[in-house]
Design a protein around this nucleic acid. Structure first.
Length: 551
RNA sequence: GCGCCCGUAGCUCAACCUGGAUAGAGCGUUGGCCUGCGGAGCCAAAGGUUACAGGUUCAAAUCCUGUCGGGCGCGCCA
């Protein structure tokens, strides 16, 4: 990996220079300079050193220069204004990038740091009281892409969906189905004020009517209430599962909140907190002293009517996760859960799970815009565009890609009109098209029996064009992309990189033919194409977007 | 009221956490490029006082303070 090689060389040079041990030098950067005239890479090391040695950066750079040159990685090193040291890499170093990619294949850029450690990502976890919305779609893609990333790094990844099948909203949902069911038989029963009015509730009632006929009209209230609740949730969860599958997201595990209530899990968790003396009674309720762990107020765990709060169940849920042996847990929540983060973290601290065991990502709102106007959405009123409809209109790949065009922290305006109209010009096609073009080249080469020879004999030194070098350098950045994405948990980085790589590739493609008369050059370029194809494949696989051979 | 986030090109956004050189993309606008591997493409141009005012620094979009403007959170809901 280019950056590491350079960084190591820089440290060696500093040590040989001898005025200060490299391990005592604060971290310095190696970056790509703003212009190609300034070299392939650049470092501020001399400026950092100048600070601790209290000398002019330019002088430090001058002293360091001969030692850097001896490392032999560079064709030329320049000292720029301000004390930046600019490297112009040797072609051998660039060739090494291609060799490494072809040698490692799908493993290129993915150090096996996971060591089969168990990691859980919990996401979507939509209330089973209605169809998945476009907001759920955003969480789904973010979680899925991160799961792909961890899997490629050798982690043992579990994608889990938490089903909130307990509580007042579920009761209102069950009553809504019940009302629709009775209405189907001409009975007069109205939907409760906190109920759900969407068309889909009528469909659920119809399905239940087909399954059991009119039996429930005469069943005792509690019996039929339970059936509407259970069957309603089941049907809703099933529809979530199907929608997500169409979207390319499949969960390993579906966890029901109600199981926590049916077992003694919640009580046990409260017991643990009680032993630690973190629980107290006030106003007839039982409270968790969460302010001791960074929350801004204490939280109720058991209401004065004796029932558990959602938070109590969620604490038990996270304790359950811990006991299942996950070394790391990542929760991905929508913006409406912002105020919930601190108390959850306080809970895991109190339970002693260590800082960083739980990471919570909050993605920002998704707003739908049609014809330039915001579409207001309300699940209760049944007025919303579902994720299914969005996939129908725009297509799986484009929807996934579109969701990732913004950082997690940034609100996303999804312009339906534009997304549909511009589907063929969506950036996803730009990246896929690059993949397709490379595939065509390789096929054409095969047709002409120009099969790329073994990598060891390829004359990679013939790749001297600026646009070839730019492409190789970009390929060399892929491992850095992976490590920064791992640190930031920001899938957007992968999309951005894919688009940059596509741009550089298209640029190369328009300027140079791969299949040229000079057979050695043609074969060298074919190797470059194979390496590029590999990196595109890795990107698209992470994103969960098709890598088509034809479009 | 308390707390958090945001303000960057006509529009939508990167870069801010970890301060570095000429603040980048996409869309839109304007002008070029198809008798060779797929034009869903490429090239070029125009477009910026990084909300404002101070401060720290050799260096500030980035860090600190204040002002203005926008958004969100603050339930014995889930």
């Amino acid at each position: 990996m280019l950056l590491n090689i350079l960084k190591q060389a820089l440290r060696n040079a500093i040590d040989k220079w001898g005025r200060v041990a490299s391990q005592n030098v604060p971290p310095f950067d190696i970056t790509i300079p703003p212009s190609e005239r300034l070299g392939d890479y650049s470092t501020n090391a001399a400026i950092i050193l100048a600070k601790i040695l209290k000398e002019r950066p330019e002088n430090i750079a001058e002293e360091l220069l001969p030692f850097l040159e001896k490392e032999g990685l560079t064709e030329k090193i320049e000292i720029a204004r301000g004390g930046f040291i600019n490297f112009f890499l040797t072609s051998q170093l660039l060739e090494a990038v291609i060799r490494e990619i072809l040698d490692k294949g799908g493993k290129y850029g993915f150090p096996q740091i996971g060591e089969a450690k168990k990691i859980q990502l919990e996401f979507v976890s939509a209330n089973p009281t209605g169809p998945l919305s476009v907001a759920h779609g955003r969480g789904a893609v973010i979680g899925d892409v991160l799961a792909n990333l961890f899997a490629r790094l050798g982690y043992n990844v579990v994608k889990e969906y938490y089903i909130n099948d307990h509580g007042s909203q579920i009761e209102a949902f069950a009553k809504s189905i019940e009302a629709r069911y009775f209405q189907l038989f001409g009975e007069d029963m109205s939907i409760p004020s906190d109920g759900y009015r969407g068309e889909y509730v009528k469909d659920l009632a119809k399905i239940i009517r087909e399954e059991v006929g009119d039996k429930l009209l005469y069943a005792p209230k509690e019996v039929r209430g339970e059936l509407f609740r259970e069957r309603g949730v089941e049907l809703m969860v099933q529809s979530h599962r199907e929608t997500l599958k169409r979207f390319g997201v499949e969960f390993h595990s579906w966890f029901q909140e109600s199981n926590l209530h049916h077992s003694s899990t919640i009580a046990k968790t409260l017991g643990v907190l009680k032993e630690k003396g973190l629980i107290f009674e006030k106003d007839g309720a039982i409270w968790f002293h969460s302010t001791l762990f960074g929350d801004d107020k204490d939280r109720v765990l058991v209401r004065s009517d004796g029932s558990f709060t959602y938070f109590a169940a969620d604490l038990a849920y996270h304790r359950n996760k811990y006991e299942r042996g996950f070394a790391q847990v990542i929760d991905i929540w929508g913006p409406d859960h912002y105020g919930y983060v601190r108390r959850m973290l306080a809970g895991t601290r109190a339970l002693g799970y260590g800082e960083g065991w739980l990471r919570i990502l909050i993605f920002q709102v998704v707003r739908l815009v049609r014809e330039g106007e915001l579409i207001m959405m309300s699940k209760r009123e049944g007025e919303f565009v579902t994720l299914d409809e969005l996939i129908d209109e725009v297509g799986k790949d484009a929807v996934r890609f579109f969701y990732l065009l913004r950082t997690i922290d940034s609100p996303l305006d999804f312009d339906m009109t534009l997304a549909v109209k511009q589907a063929p010009e969506n950036p996803v096609y730009y990246v896929q098209y690059a993949h397709t073009r490379i595939h065509s080249i390789l096929k054409e080469a095969e047709k002409r029996s120009l099969s790329p020879q073994s990598i060891t004999s390829a004359r990679l030194d013939l790749l001297k064009e600026e646009k070839e070098k730019a492409l190789i350098k970009k390929l060399g950045e892929f491992p850095t992309l992976i490590s920064t994405t791992l640190a930031s948990l920001e899938p957007y980085n992968i999309v951005r990189y894919s688009m940059e790589l596509a741009r550089i590739f298209h640029n190369f493609y328009e300027s140079h033919r791969v299949i040229v008369d000079n057979e050695d050059l043609a074969k060298a370029r074919l190797q470059l194409m194979k390496a590029t194809l590999q990196v595109f494949k890795s990107c698209l696989q992470l994103l969960g977007v098709e890598a088509p051979e034809r479009m």
